[in-house]
Computed example of a mutant assay.
Amino acid sequence: MDHPVTRVVVDVMLKPEILDPQGQAVERALPSLDLEGVTGVRIGKHIELEVADGAGDPEAVAATVADKLLANPVIETYTVRVEQPST
């Protein structure tokens, strides 16, 4: 029997003042694909967690995981959102 879980998404991005070489490389490549007018490309991480019911507030659990493991607070920020179950 499956235990109920809540899916939580954590997106980790470099702080705006931190150089993003991956984003710059993508931005420089876009004109070669005839894609003009796209600027400010930033690359980050998208992490999905399944938090079991009873493990605590899913958003708070995910924030703790992000604080302690997923993000480097010196150079990165993160956002946490609980996904709505599909119907």
Rank of each mutant, 00 (worst) to 15 (best):
Ala62Glu: 04
Ala62Pro: 08
Val51His: 13
Glu36Gly: 05
Thr64Ile: 05
Asp34Trp: 00
Val74Asn: 07
Pro73Leu: 10
Glu50Arg: 15
Val38Ala: 15
Gly40Leu: 02
Lys45Leu: 03
Glu36His: 09
Ile47His: 06
Val61Ile: 13
Arg42Gln: 09
Thr64Val: 04
Ala71Asp: 05
Lys45Ile: 02
Arg42Tyr: 07
Val80Thr: 03
Ile47Asp: 08
Ala55Leu: 13
Ile43Phe: 06
Thr77Val: 14
Leu49Gln: 07
Val41Ile: 12
Val41Gly: 08
Tyr78Leu: 06
Leu70Gly: 03
Asp34Gly: 06
Asp57Arg: 11
Asp57Tyr: 10
Ile75Cys: 01
Gly54His: 11
Val74Asp: 07
Gly44Asp: 03
Ala60Met: 09
Val38Pro: 11
Asp34Pro: 00
Leu35Ala: 08
Val51Phe: 14
Ile43Ser: 10
Lys68Val: 01
Asp34Lys: 03
Asn72Ala: 04
Pro73His: 08
Gly44Glu: 02
Val51Ala: 14
Tyr78Arg: 09
Glu76Phe: 01
Asp67Ala: 09
Ala55Asn: 15
Glu48Arg: 09
Glu76Ala: 01
Gly40Ile: 01
Thr79Ala: 10
Val65Glu: 00
Glu48Val: 14
Asp57His: 12
Asp67Val: 05
Gly40Ala: 02
Glu36Ile: 03
Glu36Thr: 07
Gly56Ile: 13
